[in-house]
Design a protein around this nucleic acid. Structure first.
Length: 328
DNA sequence: ATTCTGACA
DNA sequence: TGTCAGCA
């Protein structure tokens, strides 16, 4: 546990700044993204999605960019796009056979190519400088300009992913990430407090903890799910939904407190790596809960086989409390 | 120990 | 999508 100079378990980056740095074998990528290794190979073979480099012996080596793309794919899948149709939606590297503008999807991909990367670089620089004023300035300039959900999915989460990967190996990585988490926390907490008072619907946010906790992946001070729940919570606040973030737990004790918290719905952010047994267990516990449950987030798909009838679009939940007062 | 391909349910 | 066999 001692965070000394022990670089032994850094299987992924034997040399901090060697040429092989930042390349990950398929198993590691599977853990990082929550996508099964077989699925990754299948995506590549059947759809030409995510073509990694290879070692001389043919083993796949995924770059940070590849991993970012996998996560981009997952975000499309979460939105209900079929895997066979995400190819054209991705930020294209090689010559696109047929650049078909599919309405807003293509428009967003366009923005993603031009505007976001520059912004991400500026954000990264602000982070590396511990420049809080600059960081908040950049955020101020863009929050409000776009719907927060778009900002979260197209900018903030990809940026955090990238930053996490880029910093791994740096001695000050933990300090930087802790600082960033603190900055974002205070920022969004302030909004949450205001929003919660006026919210008509109250939602309980819970990260599902795999019982076989797969330890911290890359030296993350803040667990990966914490970032995600912070951003999701911010988005919900922005949309006028009251949010209570309980952090990471398993479901066992939840029924004991539900009647006192009395939320309108439960939003669960699954983590990576559930065994089949765990999935069944979770399914049973979810079925026993007396309220609306939604699975959401990066790893929701890994649980979709478990209770697809509960996997509702977040937007559907929000539709009833949308601004404009359609109902209520 | 892990990953590879390809066939198959 | 996932599992299995048979290799490297």
């Amino acid at each position: 546990m001692q965070p000394t100079i022990d670089a032994k378990n850094q299987t992924t980056q034997a040399t901090a700044d060697g040429d092989s740095a930042g390349l990950y074998p398929i198993g590691e990528v599977s853990r990082l993204t929550g996508v099964n290794a077989v699925t990754l190979r299948a995506w590549q073979r059947r759809f030409g999605l995510v073509i990694p480099k290879r070692t001389p012996k043919g083993h796949r080596l995924y770059s940070a960019a590849d991993i970012a793309q996998i996560r981009e794919i997952c975000r499309w899948l979460e939105r209900g796009v079929a895997i066979s149709k995400v190819k054209p939606l991705l930020a294209p590297g090689p010559a696109q056979t047929s650049a078909l503008p599919q309405g807003q999807a293509a428009a967003q991909a366009q923005i993603a190519q031009t505007e976001w990367p520059a912004l991400m670089q500026q954000l990264t620089q602000a982070l590396l400088d511990f420049n809080a004023a600059r960081l908040h300035g950049l955020l101020d300039a863009n929050i409000g300009l776009y719907p927060f959900g778009l900002l979260r999915q197209q900018l903030l989460q990809p940026w955090l992913d990238e930053v996490g990967l880029r910093l791994s190996g740096r001695l000050d990585a933990k300090l930087l990430l802790s600082w960033l988490y603190d900055q974002l926390s205070v920022r969004f907490a302030a909004r949450r407090l205001g929003a919660n008072k006026q919210a008509r619907k109250h939602l309980l946010l819970l990260r599902l903890l795999p019982s076989a906790a797969p330890a911290a992946a890359i030296g993350d001070v803040v667990s990966e799910g914490a970032w995600e729940s912070m951003l999701v919570g911010a988005e919900l606040s922005e949309l006028g939904v009251g949010v209570t973030d309980l952090g990471a737990h398993d479901l066992a004790a939840l029924p004991l407190v539900l009647d006192r918290l009395s939320p309108d719905a439960l939003l669960l952010l699954p983590g990576p790596g559930y065994s089949a047994g765990e999935r069944a267990n979770i399914a049973a516990q979810l079925a026993a809960l007396p309220l609306e449950c939604h699975l959401y987030g990066r790893f929701a798909l890994t649980l979709s086989g478990l209770a697809p009838w509960r996997l509702t679009e977040l937007s559907a939940l929000l539709a009833s409390s949308e601004t404009g007062g359609a109902d209520e």
